Simulated assay, not measured.
Amino acid sequence: MPSKIENYADSESRSVVRFLTAKITKPRDIHTQISEIYGVNAMGESMVRKRVRMFKEGRENVNDEPRRGRPSLVSDDLINKVDIKEKEDTRFTLSSLSSNFPEISRSLLHEIVTDHLGYRKVCSRRVPKQLTQVHKDQQAASALTFLTCYNDERDDFLTHIVTGDETWLPHSTPESKQQSMQWKHTDSPQPKTEKFK
Rank of each mutant, 00 (worst) to 15 (best):
N7Y: 12
G58H: 03
L131R: 10
L109Q: 06
E12Y: 09
S124P: 00
I104D: 03
R91S: 14
F146I: 09
L131F: 04
H171P: 01
K87N: 13
E65M: 11
S98W: 03
A141Q: 08
F146T: 06
S98Q: 08
T159S: 09
S188Q: 05
F101M: 04
I24D: 12
K87A: 07
F157I: 04
M43D: 01
L73R: 08
L131S: 11
V74G: 01
I112S: 01
F157T: 01
D155M: 09
V127F: 05
H31N: 06
V17N: 00
E65Y: 09
R18E: 05
S180H: 04
L97H: 00
K121I: 10
L169W: 11
L117W: 00
E65V: 06
S172I: 10
E12T: 10
G69S: 05
L108S: 03
W168I: 08
S75R: 11
E60C: 02
M181A: 14
I34L: 15
T173A: 09
Q138C: 11
K197E: 13
R14S: 02
H31W: 01
K192C: 12
V162L: 15
E12P: 00
V122Y: 02
E175Q: 12
R49V: 08
K121W: 05
Y38K: 01
K85L: 11
E194S: 10
Y8K: 02
R53F: 09
T163F: 13
L78Q: 01
A22Q: 13
E166P: 00
R91V: 11
T25I: 14
T163W: 13
T90C: 00
K87R: 09
R120M: 11
I104N: 04
R59C: 04
S176N: 09
K195P: 00
I30F: 03
L147K: 08
S124I: 05
A141T: 12
D29K: 13
V122L: 06
I104K: 05
S105W: 02
V17D: 00
F19Q: 13
T21D: 06
G164T: 06
K121Q: 14
Q190N: 08
E194Y: 14
P191H: 06
S105M: 02
K81G: 01
Y38S: 03
G69N: 07
W183A: 02
L109A: 04
R67T: 14
F55L: 03
K121N: 10
